[in-house]
Amino acid sequence: MRHPADPDDPEHPAAPGVRPYLRNTGPGVRYQPEPPPAPSPGPPPGSSGPPPGEQTTSLRPFVLTSGRVDGLDPNIGLETQVSSHPGALSARLSPEQRAIVHLCGEPLSVAEISARLRLHLGVTRILVGDLRAAGHLDVHVLENDFPDPETIMRVIRGLRSIS
């Protein structure tokens, strides 16, 4: 027979004064938070933010950009081609910047960088601008705002040849 005040006995809870989470907790059993809910496509309706216990796996965008939310170079467009400088790989860079440098060994568009690294487009543009300023990337800015007729003719011929 257990002692009436045995904390292991759910029928006879510990004396008042023992905080609730210490009751019903036998030796060797540590307090554990509720297990995270089964993965669901989205947070349950009515809740804001991630459900309690769920680990967020990505940083907030402004952390990646050192707090900046603007200062975008308007010349860095979605289709703008970006390529890494040799030697940029040995520089000290954040993981995201390093990933961009790795990816741009061959010229790649800003939109593709964003999609492949699953980085927000605005964040990608800021990071690309930073890497360019630091001399790690070439950003190939076009001189003309609107393509010339010869370029358009080449696109037309190229598309026509698609069957």
């Binding site: 940083l59 993981p95 492949r116």
Partner: peptide, 29 residues
């Protein structure tokens, strides 16, 4: 933070060096 969420190996990407680096294509959209 996992910058390569789809586990793509990017560490082996080559950065071409020297004058033979490919010139980027002109993008139109």
């Amino acid at each position: 933070f996992d910058p390569y969420p789809d586990n793509r190996v990017v560490g082996t990407a080559r950065v071409p060096s020297g004058p033979q680096r490919t010139a980027p294509p002109v993008p139109v959209k």
